[in-house]
Every structure is written in C-alpha cells, then in structure tokens.
C-alpha cells in the first residue's frame, strides 16, 4: 500500500499566559496509507483532536513535519496550503456549530465547490445527498431544522464535496444517540468502501473503532503508546493503558474490573519517565526514570512500554 499521509515527530505545544507550555501532542510519528482507516483512540484531553487537526493543516505544528503524498505540507503558508485542502477534509464532532446558522444547507454545501472554482455544483450536491441518504429537499432549509444525525450526514456530505483522498473524522458519532451512531458508522463504512477514501477516525468508543478501522493508534497524554492492526490490538493489548481502556468497556460476561486509579496528569506538567507510570498497575521503578520509546514487538505492531503485556 502506498503512503498517503505521513507525520514525522509531530508536536503541538501551546504557550500559556503564565509562561507554561501545554504539550497537547508530543513527538508523534504515524502513517496513513491510501484507502486505509486509522483510528486515533484515547481519553478526552489526550491530544487526539489536536493531532487530527494538525495533520491536515488546521493548526501549525510546533515541530515536526507532515507529508502528503511525499510532499511536505507542514509549514506552508495559508495560501500555499489551499491547493491541498480539497485532498483532505475534516468531519467535525459537533455538527450543530459547524454549519453557519444563517446560510441554507444548499449554500453551505456549494461553498467548497465555489471556493475552488469547480463547476457542476448542483449535480455534485445531488450525488452526495443521495450517497448520504438525504433528499434534495434539504437544500433550502437551515441547519437548525435538522436532527443531529441528519446534520452529521450533511457534515459528511460537505467534507466529501471536493472528492478528498483523506477524511479526518473527529468523534463524528459522540454527539449522537446510540441508534443514530450506528447509522453514521455504517454510512462512513459504506462511503469508505465505495469511494476508497482514507480515513483518520478519532474516537474514544472502542466498539465503533472495531467496526470502522483497519489500524489503531492509542494515545496517552499527547503521545502514541501503542499502534497496530485493530483486531490484534483489541484482542491482545500490549500496553497496560490499552488494556485499561478495553477493561473500561462493560461486557455482559464479566464483572467490570477496577478502573484506573487517579486522574490523567496535566499535559502542562507531564510526569517524568513513562507518562503512564503514575496510574499504571504494573509500574516498575524504571518506568519513573526512563521514557519508553515506541518499538516493534511484532509485524506492524509497536508499543511504548518497558514491560509490554505480550
């Protein structure tokens, strides 16, 4: 498979007013292959949304580089980046705020085509509405007239207007009812199969990830702690944090194991050594001293732990 998007040692730090630094994303390297779905998983605040935005140039990385089809897109000016925008689009989490309340759906859907001077807007809108399962009667209506699920369909339609190669979906189902979540997940899967668009799927819902993704990258405090094939990782996690995430999913066949102790440390002042050692049930003295690097433990499987579980 050819590499579509590659991030090398990507960091995104925010300077806070007190001279402190919030390390939202630290030293992340990953690749997205053409047509592949990569899930970014982690607790809220672990930097997965920031990473997703930085990957497609909606935020300037503090250090590191991003390559799209081998060409560097990080550090480009806004104007230079505009040429790349149609290739990578984002589906935002909160569909209620991503539509301008003063513009009709038809106007909003046509906007990306107009920005890039494309023609055949009406036909394109018709095709996409059909693909996301909405009728063309929605075009003259305003965003507030739709349910969350319908809006998320429109959100996806808008992201697909320009025919992107990469879709970054930032928790596209987290604001929806469970029944509607399933519809959106199915829609995304169908679209991915029919259009062959690669997808970075940001989520904290492992059940959704299992259905959606080919590969998974687990993030903790701005770093990737484990990465690999989705089924392999979810069946046999190598990092204690991944196992804790899986344990937190209720299952009918077992009592819920005790949750992780403590809170997520602040990304302003992350712990020395392994960022997870303060909460890790298996932590050893070495974990507080030395930060484990991501290393390969099996084919297509990396983990950042001194004492991996497999």
């Amino acid at each position: 498979m050819t590499i579509l998007l590659e991030a090398k040692n990507l960091s995104k730090h925010y300077r806070l007013s007190h001279g402190e630094t919030l390390r939202a994303v630290s030293d992340v390297s990953l690749v997205v292959h053409r047509g592949e779905a990569l899930a970014l998983v982690g607790e809220s605040g672990c930097g997965k949304s920031t990473l997703g935005r930085t990957l497609i140039g909606l935020g300037v990385p503090s250090s590191g580089e991003v390559f799209f089809e081998g060409e560097r897109i990080s550090g480009l000016s806004d104007r230079a980046l505009r040429r790349w925008r149609p290739r990578m689009q984002m589906v935002f989490q909160d569909s209620s705020s991503t539509f301008n309340p003063r513009r009709t759906i038809g106007d909003t859907l046509a906007e990306p085509m107009r920005i890039h001077g494309r023609t055949g807007i009406a036909e394109r809108i018709g095709t996409l509405l059909e693909q996301v399962g909405l009728s063309s009667s929605v075009l003259s209506r305003y965003p507030h007239e739709f349910s969350g699920g319908q809006r998320q369909r429109l959100n996806i339609a808008r992201a697909l207007m320009l025919g992107p190669d990469l879709l970054v979906a930032d928790e596209p189902t987290s604001a929806l009812d469970v029944s509607v979540q399933a519809q959106i997940v199915n829609l995304l899967r169908e679209l991915r199969n029919s259009l062959g668009v690669a997808c970075v799927f940001i989520s904290h819902d492992l059940a959704v990830v299992r259905q959606m993704a080919d590969r998974i990258a687990v993030m903790y405090l701005g770093r990737i702690v484990e990465e690999g094939d989705v089924l392999a990782v979810l069946e046999a996690p190598a990092h204690p944090y991944t196992r804790a995430l899986l344990n937190a999913v209720p299952r009918p066949d077992r009592p819920l194991p005790p949750p992780l102790k403590g809170d997520v440390p602040s990304p302003i002042n992350p712990p020395q050594g392994c960022a997870f050692h303060t909460r890790c049930p298996l932590a050893q003295p070495r974990c507080a001293q030395e930060r484990p690097e991501l290393h390969r433990i099996a084919e297509g499987r990396t983990v950042a732990c001194h004492y991996p579980l497999i």
Binding site: D78, L81, R82, Q89, S97, F99, E111, I115
Partner: peptide, 15 residues
C-alpha cells in the same frame, strides 16, 4: 472561534 469558521478554513476559504 465558531466551528463553521474552522470548517470554512478547512475547505480552503481565504481570510
């Protein structure tokens, strides 16, 4: 800071 402004930027709209 609204979502639709971020969305417009993501689509490639100029300032």
């Amino acid at each position: 800071q609204a979502g639709f402004v971020m969305a417009a930027r993501g689509m490639g709209a100029s300032d």
